[in-house]
């Protein structure tokens, strides 16, 4: 009797726990792991990601006047500002805004858009992984 009660309340807790999660939420580490999977397939002789390379990539311009810092600032833990519209952009570092890198579809969408704006092409898995490795080293 008691056991039955336990089992059903446990089931209920599991169900409500699931419902409270946003759809397909992941941690930044899980997102990094799936980018790694992509990079292993796409990069011959893949050597892993480098936060130092990610930082350089993030702060450099790549052929036009924009860099990632144009909207996300030199400090990814700080609030940014859209270079064209002036709208506030929440910090990019997961340590400073909890929702960052928790929705893989959103991450993909913005990498595609922002890389197109800054580099005139999509970023490689290597570049995306390096950037995320860098952002994960940023402390608030």
């Amino acid at each position: 009797m008691l056991r039955k009660f336990y089992a059903s309340s446990l089931a209920l807790m599991v169900v409500t726990g699931l419902a409270a999660q946003p759809a397909l939420a992941e941690t930044p580490d899980q997102v990094l792991a799936s980018i790694r999977g992509e990079a292993e397939k796409a990069t011959p002789g893949f050597q892993g990601f480098s936060a130092a390379r990610g930082e350089k990539f993030f702060k450099a311009t790549h052929g036009n006047e924009l860099s990632c810092t144009s909207c996300h600032t030199e400090n990814p833990a700080a609030q940014g500002k859209h270079a064209k519209t002036g709208k506030a952009v929440q910090p990019l570092a997961p340590s400073a805004s909890a929702e960052r890198f928790s929705d893989p579809a959103k991450v993909e969408k913005w990498f595609k858009r922002n890389c197109n704006d800054v580099l005139g092409r999509v970023c490689t898995a290597q570049e995306k992984g390096d950037v995320l490795a860098y952002l994960l080293t940023i402390q608030k």
Binding site: K84, K109, K112, R113, N114, N116, D117
Partner: peptide
């Protein structure tokens, strides 16, 4: 879109 990529699925 006004000089920026705002593409959607």
């Amino acid at each position: 879109h006004f000089g920026t990529d705002a593409s959607l699925t």
